[in-house]
Amino acid sequence: MSGTYETPGGTHETPGDPHGGRDRPGHRAALALGDDALVLAQRLGEWAGHAPELEEDVALANIALDLLGQARTLLSLVGDEDKLAYLREEREFRNVQLVEQPNGDFAQTIIRQLYFSVYQELLYGQLAGCRPEDATPVAALAAKAVKETAYHRDHAEQWTLRLGDGTEESHRRAQHAVDALWRYTGELFQPVEGLDVDWDNLRATWTTSVRSVLEQATLRVPEGPQSAVWAAGGGRQGVHTEPFGRLLAEMQHLHRSHPEASW
């Protein structure tokens, strides 16, 4: 997926050119975490104007904006943030498949938030904990963003408890989401080049935290595998699930139709 291609705005270098300077481990790490944040921000943004309550609309939009801020910082470490967001093809995105999964009902959005924000807080926490002389730009972003990530995790936990231990209907929907998204959680612990992280420790801590929240919410912890048997690779390798194409089409069509358009 490298080289040049035509758009109405002219000829462009493919922003994710794997043979360019962006192939450095630091860039690959920034791209992976930046794409996680960008894609989840886009998904959460889809709730704007549609959330079950006005207050929740605002809460989800706030989380989306936090993530968008992280994405901008991370992608700017790699290159032109707009080109990276709007002009890459599906196979060039390095986000985990979990974040591209559709919003579904409110329970599915909340469980996706739970799985991801617990992961992101632990990951950022580890990155932020490195010695100052070893701090990379990604670690600096992690140190800054870990507090807002803790808030995202708290929001997801609060809602998981209320949905799981709420009405019969909310419990049923939450359990469905817990089971349906479980297969995308294994990918979270796949090592990312350029990140100094103890991945086994991350997996163990994540499992303990998520298990504790689910049990408290009277939800059953899935026992199935944490990846699909048919998976040909993961989002970190540029392999994405079907709903991701539609997400990209919506996110990119304006920029692709009107290159360089501004407010």
């Binding site: 309550e53 006005l54 207050e55 708290d154 609060q158 209320r162």
Partner: peptide, 20 residues
């Protein structure tokens, strides 16, 4: 003011609306 199902979520909704 905010709407919320309970005190803990009221605090969080208030944070999102008034202290961001």
């Amino acid at each position: 003011s905010v709407h919320a199902p309970d005190a803990a979520l009221a605090l969080r909704n208030a944070r999102d609306l008034y202290t961001r």
